[in-house]
């Protein structure tokens, strides 16, 4: 949403870059030779883990975008529960009123990727070039950082937004 808050500035940026991959685009595989990738969210399952490795491999500058990517944030609230099994039982098991639940197996299935025991930050999985914390990062900061990155400036970027 914060991304869209950039309003008309988004159009300026769009003129200076090609958007090659996004959850909103109908592209199945992550393209090769990407200059800049903004990664939102943390790594919660095996699928994410594979994805982030691919992204890292094919990206020049990887930006951990937003608190979830940087710290785990809300997605990592489950981490004190320690294991995927406990998390799934908590979410899908018998509820407090006593109605029975059917927790899925932590190991995943052919369609559902296995949940990691702990939600991991991007940094704990791959090298991160730029950190852009914030929940969400303010639109102004996104414009600034993206403009600089497109202009080839990398240093001193992470100092522009804050945790939370």
């Amino acid at each position: 949403m914060s991304f869209l808050d950039m309003d008309d500035r988004l159009l300026d940026l769009a003129a200076r870059m090609d958007l090659v991959y996004s959850p909103l685009m109908d592209v199945k595989t992550f393209p090769e030779h990407v200059d800049i990738t903004l990664v939102e969210g943390a790594v919660a399952n095996q699928d994410h883990l594979r994805q982030i490795a691919t992204i890292r491999e094919r990206t020049d500058i990887l930006v951990a975008f937003g608190d979830c990517a940087v710290t785990g944030n809300v997605t990592a609230l489950r981490n004190p529960l320690n294991t995927a099994g406990v998390v799934l039982r908590r979410a899908y098991g018998d509820d407090e009123a006593g109605s029975p639940g059917r927790p899925p197996r932590p190991g995943g299935t052919a369609d559902v990727p296995a949940l990691l025991d702990k939600v991991r930050t991007i940094r704990s999985c791959v090298r991160v070039d730029v950190y852009l914390p914030g929940c969400p990062p303010p639109a102004d900061v996104i414009v600034d950082v993206l403009s600089d990155l497109i202009a080839g400036k990398v240093d001193g970027l992470h100092n522009r937004s804050r945790l939370g």
Partner: peptide
């Protein structure tokens, strides 16, 4: 478990202020 975004003290927290003042963007 310091999760700023869901904390009642978000933006009004001395620990968060320290992190911001130090340009601490990740741990």
């Amino acid at each position: 478990n310091h999760v700023c975004s869901v904390c009642v003290a978000n933006r009004n927290c001395e620990l968060q202020d320290l992190a911001v003042a130090m340009n601490l963007h990740h741990v």
